[in-house]
Write a protein that binds this DNA or RNA. Structure first.
Lengths: 355, 355
DNA sequence: CTGAAAGCGCTAACAA
DNA sequence: TTGTTAGCGCTTTCAG
């Protein structure tokens, strides 16, 4: 509508033609200099560069990209930003992208599936050269379209049911297995489990790991000790609370499928008058930044979040370079991080004065 | 370089001309239909829309924006994403932007000033229609350039020394004043203060608020109780620790300039064998999501982070609509949120069995 | 080594 | 109500 961009006081941004004129060459030559083309006379190059500097010229991305160049932008779809989880992954993405001189167009779905698919359609449309999806809700809906256009994308911490996408995630099964075995080794036998949303692959894998470990440790799998959460702190609190009120005898440990749920479980335990780790042990999954500064510091299974981001970017960039590259799947190793929220069940009662 | 975009299997994206041809009209007409232009025959409009649907046509943003239309994208510069602070603000930004159908191009400076100014140059260059800067480090460097081009931007939680920018922040002085007075009312007289980076306006204002409250409460301002932090948890930990080791008698309360620093101070206090809030009270500033689930829950001064994001977007959008609009400054009210990390100093010793 | 010219996909006068 | 025609700023042949 009434676009005031030409108001009197406004300085006009320098274009490539301005630079060309000011340095007495053609715009093509300026373009060559700027793109690092080899065969330009040194003196010409110097002159152009000097002019660019003097005029404070910066190329217009849209024009460049329209003209067939690269936009150097990738789309990033995230569920939210209010806990460190996505932030940490993004740190990895950021680092790797900076190296390749790419920028990020961000889409926050706020766990709203329809918004998610809307964005994906829009993103794959021109501006971005590729797409990174962090823990998307229901990828299957739009993944086909993406594949149909042969549009480069990588899923982070989520799996495509058709197994036809590039994905980066962690060894969820093994991580959960180890965590459970660790609790068992501490003497726990009544180990409750708070799942993630079971629509999500990682949640299912962690559940399987938990069950497998129980079996291997000769602990019966009791369905009443398994409650369904959704990776949210609030939900973790609620289900843990009702679990603690319902089950008798009480579990001596709770394994929450992610740190956020674990925080919720900690709150619930405390409200029930239980001391952590003396009365009940709690273990999480992810190792988001907060895990190390809740009190007591949370023992958890570390996902290499930052590294996942980096790897995803590398894969995406490769795919952008060579669109015919087949999908890859990478699962990075998890690692048990022992802090203060789990205690030995044998010693209960004897060692009450831990700080 | 070797752009494989024309590999055999790749479907080509439909352009506006494809749509025009397929519906037997000119591209101009298609453009009109798409932009909601009023005077198009209904049957034509319907036909075009049908074709768009059938071909799965989506407009190319870069072309549209190059041609003088709007890109519907704003740039967002953030310092980092690993704590809830920025995430919460972004939630507000997001909500408001979604309403106006804008997207976000994200730049993470990771507290690196040169990167910051580099980004600002790049951002203001074509693609984005405006710029939101969250807690930028040294805005003065590039703000002039932005203003010179009359490029719309809004600062969030930071102030331009020249007072020539639109800014949204909170009532830092009053918030700090209230927090300090609250501690004084609890009976504390030795109240330590951990500042933010004093290059930042909010940090200075909070320090002033703290000092003013002390004066008004007839408590002497002791410089040895004031230590300089930088809004980072790690630094908060370090300076609080050395403070607690150095000062004698110990302060009975610590006011940290932001929640992150407060978390650091909590860690330090605990390492010094102090119990919170029994032996020492700790109060923060911001009320980021973690504040309510650290243990004990942090008493803090709430900044309406989400609302700040929303207001900033509204201001920016107004500026985009009317570029001649003069800069505005809005300070949203802070609010003391009393939780569990502060105790009364009078009662010390008598009420040791709080949970 | 460099310039001219043809677009990239779209919007916006200006005609018709 | 609709089509024609210029560009937007840049890259990229194709000639020199």
């Amino acid at each position: 509508m009434n676009n005031e961009r030409n108001s009197p006081k406004e300085k006009q941004r320098a274009t490539i033609d301005d630079v060309a004129r000011a340095s007495g060459v053609s715009n093509a030559t300026v373009s060559r200099v700027l793109s690092g083309y080899e065969f330009v006379k040194e003196t010409t190059r110097a002159r152009v560069l000097e002019t660019v500097e003097r005029l404070g010229y910066v190329a217009n991305l849209q024009a460049r990209s329209l003209a067939g160049g690269r936009s150097q932008i990738i789309g990033l779809l995230v569920p939210n930003l209010d806990n460190g989880y996505v932030g940490t992954i993004m740190q990895g993405i950021d680092r790797e992208l900076a190296r390749a001189n790419y920028d990020v167009l961000l889409y926050t779905s706020h766990r709203h599936p329809s918004k998610e698919s809307f964005y994906v359609d829009a993103i794959a449309n021109g501006l971005t050269e590729g797409l990174l999806l962090i823990a998307p809700l229901v990828p299957s809906t739009y993944l086909d379209a993406l594949r149909g256009q042969n549009f480069p994308y990588v899923l982070i911490d989520q799996t495509d049911a058709t197994e036809n996408s590039s994905v980066v995630d962690a060894t969820n099964y093994q991580g959960a297995y180890e965590a459970t075995r660790y609790l068992s080794q501490l003497g726990h036998a009544r180990i409750a489990f708070v799942t993630g949303s079971l629509a999500v692959r990682s949640a299912i894998d962690r559940l399987h790991g938990y069950k497998a470990a129980l079996v291997d440790c000769d602990i019966p799998v009791r369905e009443e000790l398994i409650v369904e959460g959704d990776y949210q702190q609030e939900t973790g609190y609620e289900v843990a609370k009702s679990l603690l009120q319902r089950v008798n005898p009480l579990p001596t440990a709770i394994f929450a499928s992610n740190d956020l749920s674990a925080f919720g479980a900690m709150d619930a335990a405390r409200e029930c008058g239980l001391r952590i780790p003396d009365d009940i042990s709690i273990i999480g999954f992810d190792d988001i930044p907060q895990a190390s500064f809740v009190y007591p510091k949370l023992t958890t299974v570390r996902q290499p979040l930052e590294q996942m981001g980096q790897v995803a970017v590398k894969m995406l960039l490769e795919q952008i370079e060579d669109q015919s590259r087949p999908p890859q799947r990478v699962a990075l190793a998890t690692q048990l991080v022992i802090r203060d929220s789990c205690g030995s069940h044998h010693l209960r009662g004897n060692e009450h004065e831990k700080n």
